[in-house]
Design a binder for these strands. Structure first.
Lengths: 207, 207
DNA sequence: CGAAAGTACCATACGGCGTATGGTGGTGTC
DNA sequence: GACACCACCATACGCCGTATGGTACTTTCG
């Protein structure tokens, strides 16, 4: 994982991993079935780093914490993002999901509504992490260094893509703009929506 | 793209692509700088398949159409999902974004709110597509074939992951459950939230 | 006309990859 | 003292992306 964080997942080879461990490539195959097996294990470790709700947590706070930690963990291990859509989950992955379901049902969510909530939250956070990872931002989230590169394309865009150009100058290039702010907006919007859905859900159940 | 759709992106090599075109691998390098160049081009074509809002479209309908078409296009080209987070957008990508910005600002969204709306919608749809692609579902979205495999793990899970097991039997394995239904729930929740935000946005602007 | 320039393709080769096959020496057990 | 097991390794095969340096054929132009 240190190698993948430093040089990118595509440059992690069995030979390089072995060299970092002072053994040869083939020795790895005593411990691992194949490279897939290695990646599955790495992904499960990533899942173990996500904040997991404890029994009794208030659901909104728990989901906020989970979303935030997921985002920051995935920012630290960007290679995990595209792998998250991987079949064959490990124990950490399953345990994490289990706690989330427990938290939501304890808060009064029906099983169907729990499924809805997890689907929308997970999709949002995963998608956001992926978009965030694709931007040439420094870790602060500030647009910083990229500004000049964008300004260079600015003239070419002004003709063909007027709206895009307008957004660039009046929003994205403004000092203080950071994609991180967008994350909270969307997350709160979703949590608000879920709260409403939760209310009508429990009403319909109690009738 | 046909090759990537059929056999997966990881099995698309310059040699195989060349063979499919009845030329040799090195001949491709007359037309392409390198393999990255090829992938960038493929991704831009995918972007051109997304439904793009026309001037004057009602924003909710336009965003619904865009989200739905994005989802189905990405389901058809699953390899594009992990590539979507790719720097160096092509003309189709930029043109698409431009139209979306135009649609939202025309509907009364401020530039900041347009940014919020695009961020949350794009994150949600992209994340959902990624999760959808990772599930072993048949194209209908029905759980179908996977049921037996899940049932086999069922006993092992019942002990360690009680909530997960409960969700499996009472929700996911129920006949008629399909992940596709989750998509619409989340999308409408987000659109509702944006509508509320749009109203308070224009109120605060008119004051 | 003939030469130069440009276009589309190709043969060969290099270093890297995942991993199949078949070892090797050290340790613990009965 | 025989045997099994553990952790590691040497060699080799068939892939991969692509650097280098061609080759025919067509178009352009003095």
């Amino acid at each position: 994982m240190a190698l993948a964080d430093a040089d990118g997942i595509e440059s992690l080879s069995m030979r390089k991993l072995a060299a970092a461990l002072d053994i040869t490539a083939m020795s790895l195959y005593y411990h691992l079935k194949d490279k897939e097996d290695l990646l599955d294990g790495m992904l499960d470790i990533v899942h173990s780093e996500f904040a997991t709700p404890s029994a009794g947590d208030e659901w909104r706070a728990a989901m906020r914490k989970r979303a935030g930690s997921t985002r920051s963990v995935l920012a630290q291990h960007p290679w995990a993002i595209s792998m998250k859509a991987r079949t064959s989950p490990g124990p950490a992955t399953l345990g994490h999901l289990d706690s989330v379901i427990g938290c939501l049902t304890a808060a009064g969510f029906s099983m169907a509504m729990t499924g809805h909530a997890m689907s929308i939250l997970d999709s949002y956070v995963l998608g956001f992490a992926q978009q965030e990872a694709s931007l040439p931002l420094d870790p602060s989230g500030d647009i910083g260094d990229a500004t000049e590169a964008i300004m260079a394309q600015q003239e070419a865009m002004a003709d063909s893509f007027k709206n895009l150009a307008a957004m660039a100058v009046s929003l994205i290039l403004q000092p203080g703009y950071a994609l991180g702010n967008e994350f909270d907006f969307g997350l709160e919007l979703i949590l608000d929506g879920l709260e409403v859905a939760l209310l009508s859900d429990s009403v319909s159940l109690s009738q």
